[in-house]
Design a binder for these strands. Structure first.
Lengths: 187, 187
DNA sequence: TGAGATTTTAGCACCTGGTCTTAATACCTC
DNA sequence: GAGGTATTAAGACCAGGTGCTAAAATCTCA
């Protein structure tokens, strides 16, 4: 009894992995991979609460799609909380697992950058703006799950360009400081 | 005959739009929306070569997933063409419509940045690296469809940090120059 | 107005990848 | 060899289709 129970456990673990690896696998294929009958696979799935193929595909399509949709307005990375045009802006970005750098739990730098760059642009009143140059420094790291708070301040004009400085922090720890020189193009 | 043919055409256009809008709609629902029988919907679908619901969902799931997967390993944005560890690296990034800034056909700065940052990191041999700071300048703009070529050069050590300079160009026009200071963490 | 063509609809058998239930069989343990 | 668990098989059913045939509705034009 002990032995068979652990065998079952092992099989179910394998099943979970197989499905995670390839959610498009039918019970038939899974049964073949595990060298058991379809019935067993179905039983295991039922016990584990794993939905059927079509259901898996459906939810995959939906979540993937919504992720894509929420991702592609990449312009505004982070949520714009408040702004006073040509003066300042404030945005927050909730970080998630998929923003991690490699196998760490540190948030990848380009998310920090993207939030900073988009809020710098958002802070400018004009519609036609272009980032001319920037300079930045990472002073610490955000971890997955942290909320990044970026604050942009629009500084002086400099030969038709505006200087926007952005400071990003997690809690009260500053993790990024940057200056963007933004060109405003007259329409 | 003319009239009915055009009616059919109109219905098929509507059908196509309905499906594009909501690929998860069953023939049943489509029939109800168009006020025709299921048979008609199936016939139209067959004539138009539109696959069935499950097929649509399957391809949706796959393409959305592959997009996400190609997007989320945001570490390597662009394709790494060649590299000599701790010396230099070369990557190309094919730009697309969804990388555009606002309503322009100019490639959004964060794609340029991301490619640069990821190649800078890739050029370093060590596994545990962290971007300490960076400085960059945009010298021109890439347009949707352009191929961005980024070349990273690993420079001298500087107090345990490495300086990597990245130049990005489109054709022979330089659009970005940046320097990343990267910290190597001993494991 | 009515024959002929086209379009729409209905009906039926079949398919896949499941569901749920019941029952038989295999296997292990004591 | 009995008892209990684990596995498998078998049968009925379901959704959302395909593919085919045939009937009904509608249009067109002489």
């Amino acid at each position: 009894m002990l032995k068979s129970q652990s065998e079952r456990k092992i099989r179910q673990d394998k099943l979970a992995k197989l499905i995670a690896l390839n959610p498009m696998a039918t019970d038939n294929e899974l049964a073949a991979s595990l060298n058991v009958s379809i019935s067993t696979v179905r039983l295991d799935r039922a016990l584990m609460g794993v939905p059927e193929l079509r259901e898996r595909i459906r939810t995959m399509a939906q979540t993937a799609l919504s992720k894509l949709q929420s991702l592609s307005p990449s312009e505004v990375i982070g949520e714009l909380l408040d702004l006073e045009p040509d003066k300042w802006a404030l945005s927050v970005l909730q970080t998630a697992k998929d923003m991690a750098f490699r196998f760490t739990d540190i948030v990848s730098d380009n998310y920090v950058y993207s939030q900073a760059s988009s809020i710098a642009v958002a802070a400018i009143k004009a519609a036609n703006v272009i980032i001319d140059s920037m300079r930045g420094e990472y002073k610490g790291h955000a971890h997955v799950g942290d909320v990044l708070i970026a604050r942009a301040k629009v500084g002086v004009n400099h030969e038709g360009r505006k200087i926007v400085s952005v400071r990003t922090r997690v809690g009260d720890k500053e993790i990024f400081v940057g200056r963007f020189i933004i060109e405003v193009i007259e329409a």
